[in-house]
Structure formats: structure tokens, C-alpha cells
Simulated assay, not measured.
Amino acid sequence: MRVTGVIRSVVLLVTLLGTWFITQTYFDHSWKVISLRSWLGVTNKARIEQPPRHKCGNQQSCPQNYFAFKIISGAANVVGPSICFEDVILMSSVRNNIGRGLNIALVNGTNGKLLKTGIFDMYSGDVNKLDAFLQEIKVGTIVLTASYDDPATKMNVKVREHFEGLGSSHVKKLGFRDNWVFLGAKGMKDKSPFEEYIKNDRKTNKYDGWPEMLEMEGCTPRKMD
């Protein structure tokens, strides 16, 4: 019995020593080197090489003395529009400051600060409110506009002329349930390069009764005093 006990003790000791040896040689050296991140092939270099995030989530950054912007129209009468300027969301459903018709944000063209926002129902609203809003815009103000649902049923000649004065090329033909995004400025001498328009046409509409959503991004120059 004593011999058997000694043998058992020796076997247990050898097992413990073997376990300790494996732990020291493998886990202390190999396991510390092999991490989950490296096992998945993710290195610090890969993280460094990720592309930088640009203002408003745009594809490119803007040069000095230019403002970054992104304007997204509404999708049918379900998803509202959004307006981003210098990485700040000026209007969106999250901010709860959008509505059917035209959604307009006015920005100081020199310092990029938000001056005012407005929502104008162009289906059953009062177009005179939009007329007064546009008349009060001062020279040097940047005007960002996004349509939602219907931008034009109530639009009259006077309002269209205001937008033409801000640099719009497409406002003359804007109609029922068309989609429109536009960036212009009070005092522009030429037509704005920042405008997109899509006609409501049941043959080409993406949604039932509405064309597809529009998204426009870019860099607009700062007004230098």
C-alpha cells in the first residue's frame, strides 16, 4: 500500500510539473503575443490607414475659406430632408424642425453661423409667408433649400423670381411632387452650381407617386469682407 501511495504521489508530482512547464513555455510567451486583434488580422497600421472623416460625412474635405455642406431631400412623404453645414445638422427629423414643402436654412456667408430656418407648406400653406421670408434675406447670406413631399403647388411667379435671384436655374419648372435641393446666395451674379432637380414622372418614379431622393454635397466659398 505504501509503494502504491508513493507511485501515486510521483505521478501527481510529474503531472503538476508538466502542467507548470507547458503553462510557462506556451502561455507566458506565445499566448501573450497572440491577441484576438492580431489573430483577426487587425493591426495598428490598419487602424491608422483608415480614411479620415470629412465634415458632414462628405467624400472630400474643403479647402481653406470654403464651407462644407450636404443637402438631402425628402423621400416621398415618409422620410424627411436634412441640411448639414460645416458639420452641423441645421435641419432634420431628429431636430424636429422640418416639414412638408420647402425647408430652408439661412447662413451667414462670412462666418458660417446659422441665421434662421423656415418650413413652408407648398401644398396647402400660405405662399405669402415664403415670399416675405425670401424678401428679408440680406446680401451675403447663403440659402440652403431641401424639398419634401410637394415643393411647388402654391409657388407663384414672385417666389420663383426670388429663387432665381439667389442663383436657381430650375425653380421655373419646379412642379407638383418634384424633388429639389439647392444652395444659393443673396447677391449672386451668376447661376449657382449647387442645384439638383428631378421631375415627378410615374414612368421613372422610384416611389409610388414620388421621384427618388436627392443628395448633394460640396464646398461653397466663404464671403470675404
Rank of each mutant, 00 (worst) to 15 (best):
N103D: 04
F85G: 10
T153K: 05
H162F: 08
L114K: 14
G80S: 12
G80T: 10
I119T: 14
S124V: 05
V139S: 08
N97E: 15
G101Y: 03
N77R: 10
I89F: 14
M122D: 05
L144D: 04
G118P: 06
G118Y: 04
F120C: 01
N111G: 06
N96I: 11
E164I: 13
L90P: 11
G112C: 07
F120V: 00
F120T: 02
A105I: 06
Y123E: 11
L130C: 00
D150G: 02
L90S: 08
G80F: 13
S92N: 12
G112M: 11
R160Y: 13
N103C: 06
L144M: 15
S93A: 11
R95H: 15
D131M: 07
V159K: 01
G80N: 10
D131T: 11
R100Q: 07
I98N: 09
L114A: 10
G101Q: 02
F163L: 07
T141V: 05
S124N: 04
T110Q: 12
I89W: 15
V88E: 11
V79K: 15
V78M: 08
E164D: 13
S124H: 08
V94P: 02
N111P: 09
S147F: 15
V78Q: 10
A152M: 06
Q135Y: 07
G165E: 04
L166G: 00
T153Q: 07
I119E: 15
R95Y: 12
V127T: 05
Y148N: 08
S93R: 08
N97R: 14
K129G: 00
F85N: 09
D87W: 10
S93I: 04
V157P: 04
V143T: 02
L144W: 03
D126V: 11
E86G: 04
E86K: 07
S147Q: 09
A132M: 03
N111T: 07
G99M: 05
P151W: 12
E136H: 11
D131P: 12
D121L: 01
E86L: 03
S82T: 13
G165S: 03
D87H: 10
E136G: 13
G118V: 02
L106I: 04
V79I: 15
A146N: 05
K129N: 01
D150Q: 06
G99F: 14
S93T: 13
V78S: 12
N108Y: 14
I119N: 15
K113I: 06
P81M: 08
D87L: 08
G109L: 00
V157S: 09
G118N: 02
L102T: 01
I142C: 03
N111W: 05
I119S: 08
I104G: 03
K129Q: 06
D150E: 03
T110S: 13
P151N: 10
D149Y: 07
E161V: 06
G112Y: 11
I98V: 11
G101R: 08
L90Y: 09
S147V: 07
T153W: 10
K129P: 00
L102H: 01
A152E: 02
G99N: 09
R160D: 10
F163G: 00
S147G: 13
Y123L: 10
K154D: 05
V157M: 07
V159I: 11
N103E: 07
I104F: 04
A152P: 09
S92K: 15
G140F: 11
D150L: 02
T110D: 09
F120Y: 14
T110R: 14
E161K: 15
G167I: 03
D150P: 01
I89D: 13
A152I: 04
V94T: 13
V127R: 06
A152F: 03
H162R: 09
L115Y: 09
